[in-house]
Amino acid sequence: MTAPEKLLEVNHLKKYYPIRGGVFGRKVGEVKAVDDVSFTVRKGETLGIVGESGCGKSTTGRSILRLEEPTSGSITFEGEDLTSLSGEKMRRMRREIQMVFQDPFASLNPRKTAGLAIAEPLEVHGLGDRRERGEKVKELLSVVGLDPYHGERYPHQFSGGQRQRIGIARALAVQPKLIIADEPVSALDVSIQSQVLNLMEDLQEKYDLTYVFIAHDLSVVRHISDRVGVMYLGGMVELADRDELYDHPLHPYTQALLSAVPTPDPEAKRERIILSGDVPSPADPPSGCTFHTRCPHVMDICREIRPSFKNYGGNHFAACHLLEK
């Protein structure tokens, strides 16, 4: 990892959803789904983003593609700020950044065959004529481990793993540089998960892909990622190289998360850190550090001042007052 080239840079990304109420639909509050998140993605790497449900990881992923319009912040892809692009330019930019969705069934139009679904990105971006697209579809099907005749089938005729392969083939069709995978394996059986993960790794090597891999399963993220970011309640609390993060977590939230990962060895002695309480509502996040309501090491300062996201050596970023001492 010497002088890695930045492919994507996200700076101070915020996405607030207005809460409307009253007779006239006035804005009465906001849900801070993503609140000031910054990270970079290097060319060819896999950045894993983990967090509980509702912590804003999917919204972050969708904001990068501007499927959700960010409230503020910048998203720089290959030196170009995506947030300032016009609708039509953004549409063309989507050729470079593709997405794989969590629910492979819901993300395929039930009335289109697999072949048509995979051909669609090509068609939309005006690539190849009808015959060439047909060839390309067959090629893509075999790349993701399906047979060419699968192209004429409808989504309901496939198994979950196969559907996700179709979703991946569709994302690959336009040869993107970056693929945002939003919980791509969490809807699949464990035995199928590893197949799809391995497929994604093979494809990364073959096509020089960069992944942003969003998941809540820590072992899945550990398996596939080069670097891992941990999100809590709309904010990034820690970001580091995979092994560094898993072996030396700095943030108390990350420590608690990792202590909850089940280990196959029943004899192993581990200290479980049990967090009490629930995740606070993002419509009314706690003051200061958003984690202070559940943190076992909470200090007075945590309730008042939001800790900044700093580099604590070796590109290990974290946001915690404990570390600043």
Binding site: L67, R91, E120, V124, H125
Partner: peptide
Amino acid sequence: LAAKAIGM
């Protein structure tokens, strides 16, 4: 959403 993500 997927259709939009494709660039449709």
